[in-house]
């Protein structure tokens, strides 16, 4: 019974995974014949000053969006864990951004932030009429804001579920010992959520490697190369410049990065997948 799933996953998951490594040693324009190229692609890509930049942007997006999303999601998740009715209603509304496609969100923010036709021009507020997507640092900030806007609801829900599993007796005991809410939050809620934090962080980190569509539509990597993350770099090299070999090198780096991150975060907290299985 496992065979159909295994076949599909091997053909369109595992084979391409091996294939991308093979292709990184070949020369291919996406149409014609594929020729072996030795380590030429690797030499080109690793020697390209654009690579450290793209890696830097990728880590900046990952790190900054983690740093924004985690505290906010924790706070909102804890807040939502309360059983009051209105909080349930809030949760319904929070979830809406997650229903929109990244393309729709990117298009909306592009229109909203347009210096001539956007919200700032309409409201005549000077601060809002900046060329948000036309200046490097600002554009990166916008990407991080939009990512947070899109995904904080999801991570809040994960934390909400986590908080609800913490036994109330722990809070009662702490309250008897005279610990205030802030103290309870840092001495009970946060440590008890250790595995939830690791799960959520893993999803954020590995997910941030694939923020392709959002950035592609929002900034297309620009201005200049300011928001050119690795996934976009791969696309541009492969499908715009028709250099599939170098693009495959970037893809291999992405896979390695994803694996390394997942392993690192797993080591940090023991095994999350094992705890997921046992927790069933």
């Amino acid at each position: 019974m496992v065979v159909p799933a295994l076949v599909m996953f091997v053909v369109f998951g595992v084979v391409p995974l091996v294939g991308v490594l093979v292709l990184s040693f070949t020369q291919w324009d996406g149409l014609g014949a594929i020729r072996p190229a030795g380590v030429a692609n690797w030499r080109v890509v690793l020697g390209d000053p654009g690579l450290p930049h793209a890696v830097g942007v990728t880590f900046a997006v990952m790190g900054l969006s983690w740093a924004v999303q985690t505290p906010v999601s924790l706070l909102i998740g804890t807040f939502l864990a309360g059983r009051q009715r209105y909080r349930g209603l809030l949760a319904v509304l929070y979830f809406v951004p997650l229903l929109l496609s990244s393309a729709a969100i990117a298009i909306t923010y592009k229109a909203l932030l347009d210096p001539n036709f956007g919200l700032g021009a309409g409201l005549k507020i000077g601060f809002l009429t900046q060329d948000w997507l036309g200046r490097g640092g600002l554009a990166l900030g916008v990407v991080i804001f939009v990512v947070s806007w899109q995904f904080i609801p999801f991570h809040s829900l994960i934390y909400q579920g986590g908080v609800r599993q913490i036994p109330t007796s722990m809070y009662e005991a702490a309250a008897i010992d005279g610990a205030g809410r802030v103290r309870q939050f840092f001495s009970i809620t946060v440590p008890q959520l250790k595995y939830t934090i690791i799960t959520s962080s893993t999803l954020m980190a590995v997910g941030s490697l694939t923020f392709f569509d959002l950035i592609f539509v929002l900034t297309a990597g620009g201005p200049g190369d300011a928001t050119r993350v690795l996934a976009l770099d791969m696309y541009k090299r492969g499908f715009q410049a028709n250099l599939m070999g170098p693009a495959s090198v970037i893809a291999v780096l992405l896979v390695l990065l994803g694996l390394a991150l997942a392993l690192l975060l797993r080591r940090l907290g023991g095994s999350t997948t094992a705890s997921q299985q046992e927790g069933a």
Partner: peptide, 28 residues
């Protein structure tokens, strides 16, 4: 062991950004 191996393979798929395999998928 076969099923455990299959399960391990699926779990590995969670850690890998599958979009990175888009070029060979395109070729396929």
């Amino acid at each position: 062991r076969f099923l455990a191996g299959a399960n391990g393979l699926f779990l590995m798929g969670l850690a890998i950004p599958l979009q990175a395999t888009i070029i060979p998928v395109y070729l396929l």
